[in-house]
Design a binder for these strands. Structure first.
Lengths: 147, 147
DNA sequence: AGTATTTACTTGATATATCAAATAAATATT
DNA sequence: AATATTTATTTGATATATCAAGTAAATACT
């Protein structure tokens, strides 16, 4: 049973693209805030924009609860965040950005904006719309057949 | 400086798609060969199809040399592969699939084919062509601006 | 009320990602 | 030939991914 080489499929291209974007993002982020990862930055921004529990964050960024626990822990150690027990539901954590965290977000905002602009620079509105739609088809296909 | 929530960009959709596909793939692979990962399977197949050095493999699958070293090591432990020193250039490794490895590849081939079919099921030829092109634009944009 | 189930989160084990530093062999340079 | 540089791979440290098992609080059920 011989068929297309793995490296000739679109799914391989998707991997390539996301890795290229992650590399670009990490490089530019590191040049402004040396000690933060792309994932930490994303989660920091999400917490800043809206109060979320860890499991809500996990669902939002497609990560495992375990990963979120560890990523949060690293940011607690760096004092970007505080974590307290939710009074209304003691299983839940209340996450708040510290002043340090806020300053980092301010520094990151323009970098993140620029990263997106660089990545999507040569794309038309139409390209982006189509990309959304096609990716969504694939995602739905995969989700329907797993879990 | 307020701008689009990270979770509203296509780049986020790309992440979502690739994770959904990886999950589907791992589930279906595990149901046939319980002790192999998606990454190991990919690399095993690449080695089987063409003799490649570790660094060539790394470049091909967008992974770090260090990652390849470790992935190979795990497959050596499971006797999917043998590794010997290349006679012509003693820095290089010669990787060969064992009988066990070959049998695993035979089992995996239909699963991998099916995973792709599931993922791309609802896409037209046109969709796939466009997806390739748009992803390639993004990849080029990112690569031009990093490294 | 007491038990069972679910929910939110944590921890452990193992695989992979990334960067930096190290080793050894091959190649280039003087 | 001796030294410098490059290439192929490895190792260490730390971050993240994934699965399984565990804890504690909240909710549902009898």
């Amino acid at each position: 049973m011989k068929f297309a080489t793995p490296t000739s499929t679109v799914l391989y291209s998707i991997e390539e693209t996301i890795k290229a974007y992650r590399r670009l993002s990490q490089q530019n982020i590191s040049s402004i805030v040396p000690d933060i990862t792309v994932d930490q930055a994303l989660i920091l921004i999400i917490i800043d924009r809206e109060d979320k529990t860890q499991s809500e964050i996990a669902d939002l960024v497609f990560k495992d609860y375990a990963s979120i626990t560890r990523i949060i822990k690293l940011m607690l150690n760096k004092n970007y965040l505080t974590k307290t027990i939710d009074d209304a539901d003691k299983r839940k954590a209340e996450l708040k950005i510290t002043q340090i965290g806020k300053e980092i977000i301010e520094k990151l905002n323009p970098v993140i904006k620029k990263n997106r602009e660089i990545a999507l620079n040569t794309l038309s509105e139409q390209d982006i719309k189509q990309l959304f739609e096609i990716l969504n088809k694939i995602t739905q296909n995969c989700k329907k057949n797993s879990k």
